[in-house]
Design a protein around this nucleic acid. Structure first.
Lengths: 271, 271
DNA sequence: TTTTTAGTTCCATTATTCGGAACTTAGTTT
DNA sequence: AAACTAAGTTCCGAATAATGGAACTAAAAA
């Protein structure tokens, strides 16, 4: 599955490229890291800028990800992610558990955190929702992988970096496969400081009717304050929460759109 | 500027179309509202799904905006919007003012709120930030329009709906033009219950070196608790904050990326 | 069973994208 | 100031990818 589909694929690739810099970039920065010939890349960037997916600062010549993305993501988060419907359940879980709670979904081969709660206060959400992490060495990642059909695993596993973050990171596909079987067997996943030293967690998948993987939730702690046994005691609550979220996600029929359409409509590009 | 550029433009149009439903949609829903022939739309949707920009629930056949958008938006918000650098200033302003504070940018012809503070507590990113509103009848919208070059105005004004939200909404381009001149003259914009009854605000633009419009901030109140005179007293603080944000936005050189690239890389699509 | 509706595939035609190379700035260096 | 360099932009014939009418399949309704 090496190659991307068509012009659209290439354009989206450029978006990822811009994102990967984590800072505004000049055209030549992009050119350097891209396989496309100058003229081609230039045209792609132009198009994306026109479309508001990139923004271009005429003073500095820098490109950044465009603001249209933020708008689209707002909608994506509302209709496409589990977060809005999982919210009350997450709140309750965070209260009851008194530990940090994560809600994640798969974004391709990576884990994407779509919501997060700190024991009590809902702070810092800005910087957290939307963050991505590795799948092979996080609790939520492994919990989701464990329930994927073989066909999908075959696509996702080769994309894992198996980078050794800590001494306990699983660094081969074989080790991970063994772990995934164990997880599926016992019904939940551990993170034994595999991603960050001192950080442990217990995670369960959120499964749809056909056991399709919808997402995962976890409770996280630090080895200083707690241990796996303690976190494990929260499992019933975790599993209960996961079940409820799954129910909401599948039961729920969306309310009829209130169509605040005064604005909407096909708005076209400025220069 | 009726038409969009190329295949990429069409694909992004489809994303907007999906977003406009505010709920998961079936293919036929999209077909109904789109000008594209069935096969063409189908291919576009396929491509976007492949790319993770749309997600497709095989159980229900529904499409939603994909999770890849959330990831991209996270990056967009960090590097592309004023929000992260404006943050401490907004906090300070909200504290000092004791009123709700908005930070907005232009997304095409609309206003996009990229951050918000209620007197004290911060709000979650994707449920509030990412929201769009009309430009012609909000304080931040008018503040930004007032400083745009004529060429841009000519593109954006025809896209305004001029929908009468309240008795005091300006409902014609001519009225708005007059108002914009007044705003530019006095240096800030009022919202005299033009968008929502009982909601008033005072807004100032955030201007770059060449007076380029970077964004706008406002303090908002309700007619029950306050009045325009009172809000106006906060103007020095507002203007000061805007200036600081502008400075940060232009001065700031981004820190060298910590390149947590174990993950990144061109990750390709699952089935 | 037949009919209708929703979703998917085919493929010759057509329109877009591609990219090498030349050109234009703007910023350095001698 | 002329010569050089690097970054960004435009051109245009060749190559490729998108198009969409129509036919097909699957599933639901009559």
């Amino acid at each position: 599955m090496a190659s991307s589909d068509g012009t659209v694929g290439k354009a989206l690739e450029v978006l990822d490229l811009v994102a990967s810099f984590h800072r505004p970039v000049r055209f030549s920065d992009l050119l350097e890291r891209s396989d496309h010939p100058k003229a081609t890349l230039y045209r792609l960037v132009q198009t994306l800028t026109n479309q508001g997916m990139l923004s271009h600062d005429p003073d500095t010549g820098n490109y950044s990800l465009g603001i249209r993305l933020v708008r689209l993501a707002h909608a994506a988060w509302h209709t496409g992610s589990l977060a809005p419907r999982a919210r009350p359940h997450l709140d309750a879980l965070a209260q009851a558990a008194g530990e940090t709670v994560h809600l994640a979904q798969l974004d391709n081969a990576q884990v994407l955190y779509v919501d997060k709660r700190y024991g009590r206060d809902a702070v810092e959400m800005y910087s957290q929702a939307g963050k991505v992490g590795p799948a092979f060495c996080t609790g939520v990642g492994k919990a989701m992988l464990a329930w994927l059909p073989e066909s999908q695993l075959q696509q996702l596993l080769p994309q894992q970096s198996f980078h050794r973050f800590t001494p306990s990171t699983l660094t081969s596909e074989a080790d991970l496969r063994t772990e995934l079987l164990a997880i599926r067997d016992r019904g939940f996943a551990y993170d034994r400081e595999e991603h960050e030293p001192g950080i442990i967690c217990v995670a369960v998948p959120i499964l749809g009717p056909t056991d399709r993987v919808l997402g995962a939730i976890s409770v996280t702690g630090s080895t200083g304050r707690t241990d796996l046994k303690t976190l494990e005691a929260l499992l019933p609550k975790l599993q209960n929460t996961a079940k409820r979220i799954a129910e909401e996600a599948t039961t729920w029929t969306f309310p009829v759109p209130h169509e605040s359409l005064e604005q909407r409509e096909e708005v076209k590009c400025p220069v």
